[in-house]
Design a protein around this nucleic acid. Structure first.
Lengths: 177, 177
DNA sequence: CCAACCATGTAAGTTGTTACATGATTAA
DNA sequence: TTAATCATGTAACAACTTACATGGTTGG
């Protein structure tokens, strides 16, 4: 059966921006969508092969040996639209930090405090990276079409990171850590 | 090889509260940890069998035929502490709503607006359920030990849901939806 | 008596990661 | 020349979901 996951959605989506090799697709997902999406090579290459077979993307000659660029077809754009309009499938939640917090009495206060420190550092790092991305957005040649959407996803990251910092602060206080 | 995932951590954790059947463990995870954790039966039963084999939990007679309660052993508590003190393994991000937002120009404004509506409704529903859980926490006989930790996880849910509502509001505005 | 819930377990399938293997190209 | 990056692909494994199969118990 055809791959039912959202990997297809992400790959087709990236190819609407410009034709790309598998390597570039993965790089784009990591660098641009990285704060809310992830794909590994082991997903991308088989997925591309399927998409070609279904006529949703087509391979064009690449810059170098053993490389091919993939371009989304008209059918691919149509399919992408359908995929995007399907209801969002929420991934089952698995928050390791909250699991540790919930069972906090089974660990040393020191260890829980360390976990909170890590969460804080990670949130700060994310906020820092978002500031850098804001410049990238302004420089993007496709700003008029993509920019506002890109900014919206970035804003989600900021709000999440800020909520995370608020939570760490409050939790340190309420648990006396 | 032994199951390396955090299912063991969650199961052992639940059993620190009181001995339980597999069914009760699943129920407890769904009802109490549901806003940040998830396990299916297909994970829990094999995991319990492994834990028994390793001496981390032991089966005691259950209330009825074909049922057994599982009790965490001293070794199990020790193992749980070690597991909790391991660094939090962040699950790779896959946010379907942000994926749709990023590729928002490839879908109709109407469809994106619908996705935002769903996100808003879901966040509101979560806030409602947290209010109900707050009463449960106050009623919990183990409040003094567990309650503060439980409340902290709930607060995380509230902050996340509120951040989500803020984002939906801002995004509707910035994208004119 | 019957619906809802309690209870256990397995098998098949899907999804995804990681490690490995291979080699071309480019910039220092 | 050599390290980094570009590029592709597969095989093994790990994790997880879902559907199925089975039957006991309780409350209305």
């Amino acid at each position: 059966m055809a791959r039912a996951s959202q990997t297809r959605t992400a790959v087709l989506g990236v190819l609407t921006i410009e034709p790309a090799t598998g390597y570039e697709i993965r790089k784009g997902i990591t660098e641009v969508l990285g704060h809310f999406w992830h794909e590994s090579f082991g997903q991308i290459y088989p997925c591309l092969a399927e998409l070609v077979e279904e006529g949703l993307v087509e391979a064009v000659a690449g810059d170098r040996a053993r490389s091919s660029r993939f371009r989304i077809t008209r059918a691919g754009r149509q399919r992408l639209q359908e995929l995007l309009e399907e209801p969002v499938a929420a991934q089952p939640p698995r928050n390791g930090l909250l699991l540790r917090t919930f069972f906090g009495q089974a660990m040393t206060p020191r260890a829980l405090a360390t976990a909170l420190d890590s969460a804080e550092q990670e949130a700060r790092a994310r906020l820092g990276s978002y500031a850098a991305i804001r410049s990238d957005i302004a420089d993007d040649p496709g700003y008029a079409e993509h920019g506002r959407f890109w900014e919206a996803t970035l804003r989600a990251g900021e709000l999440t990171a800020e909520a995370s910092l608020t939570w760490v602060r409050e939790t340190r206080e309420s648990l006396g850590l």
